[in-house]
């Protein structure tokens, strides 16, 4: 389990780095965004002295304390789940805003990413297996798809399936008339609204999985152990799945780190196009209102989510690759 421990250590270091970036950014930036922010906050109405105090601590306006002390105070706030107050949704706190939006994003982006990964890996394995056949005609198409901006794909999908054909709703996460609850009405309505954004994310991200898997399959199939498996007379399907694909998929999982941050970045923009009530849309509103506490809170949460997804990928890697378990 040395491998997993090392990965855990890396995750903690990255989380620490992200939190520190978050702390130092507003303090290092030119101009005085903090003053601006406080002024805006005061315009919103009476700010309680407590909230003001918290703001001052969070953004370093408190001249009486040194940077080091501020840094530790910041950590203390984080552990209490206090990310400051949102300007856009005043007087809600940033944690509340994120808490409302996060489930939508987790389900939408999580499910679409898993679908896209599975679909792309299977397709890529098949295309790599049949190298040089008609199946390769899909490669130029996936090259094109992988270069399409996610949100633009969203616009196209909306105008085709939403506006033109009228099959799916154009925007939002659920119909206005229905109250969010766990009733079957609401859940089916929400799923209905999630179809188009999910299709958009899958279409935009599947290509890179296909290309990655295909290239690894081509490399792996030249290995001796694949030849041996074939010579033993194992069925083609077994050679393909248990020998070639199993080894070819490792880099895909290892490269998950890079991909997931790519996919998440793209998906945030997709949410904006669809006015989907997730983190990406909150981020958009935060940008439009220069709501820095919300922006930074969202940055932290997304980073944590990505780190968590990476840990899951690491566990999958350990399960798939016995070599990582050797020194356990």
């Amino acid at each position: 389990m040395k491998f997993l421990l090392r990965r855990l250590g890396f995750t903690l270091i990255t989380a620490w780095a992200a939190i520190s970036i978050n702390f130092f950014l507003p303090r290092l930036m030119p101009g005085d965004p903090v003053q601006l922010m406080v002024a805006r906050l005061q315009q919103q109405g009476a700010v309680s002295p407590n909230a003001m105090q918290a703001m001052q601590v969070a953004f370093g306006l408190d001249d009486h304390t040194s940077l080091i002390v501020q840094y530790f105070q910041y950590w203390g706030q984080l552990f209490r789940g206090d990310l400051g107050r949102s300007i856009t949704f005043y007087p809600s706190s940033v944690s509340e805003v994120i808490g409302q939006a996060l489930p939508w994003t987790l389900v939408l982006v999580g499910v679409s990413t898993v679908i896209s990964f599975l679909l792309g890996t299977v397709l890529g394995a098949f295309i790599g297996w049949r190298r040089g056949s008609w199946a390769e005609t899909i490669l130029p198409l996936s090259t094109f798809l992988s270069s399409v901006p996610y949100f633009w794909m969203g616009l196209i999908v909306i105008s085709l399936f939403g506006a033109k054909l009228g099959w799916f709703p154009l925007s939002g996460g659920f119909d206005q008339g229905i109250d969010p609850s766990w009733s079957s009405d609401f859940v089916s309505n929400a799923l209905y609204h999630a179809v188009l954004p999910a299709i958009t994310i899958v279409l935009s991200s599947v290509a890179s999985w296909i290309l990655g898997m295909r290239n690894m399959m081509v490399t792996v199939m030249d290995e001796d152990y694949v030849l041996v498996a074939q010579a033993k007379g194992l069925s083609r399907l077994r050679v393909l799945s248990a020998y070639a694909a199993r080894n070819a998929v490792l880099p895909s999982i290892a490269g998950f780190a890079l991909s997931i941050s790519f996919v998440v970045s793209g998906s945030l923009l997709v949410e904006i196009v669809f006015s989907y009530p997730g983190i990406g849309y909150s981020l958009y509103q935060a940008v439009n209102n220069e709501d820095f506490p919300l922006m930074q809170g969202i940055f932290l949460i997304i980073t944590f989510a990505v780190l968590l997804a990476n840990l899951v990928a690491d566990v999958a890697y350990v399960l798939l690759d016995p070599r990582t378990r050797q020194d356990a």
């Binding site: 090259t143 880099p251 895909s252």
Partner: peptide, 13 residues
């Protein structure tokens, strides 16, 4: 784990 295969990028492997 991070070994640079560009799976996520448009040009993998």
């Amino acid at each position: 784990v991070l070994a640079g295969d560009r799976v996520g990028g448009p040009v993998p492997g």
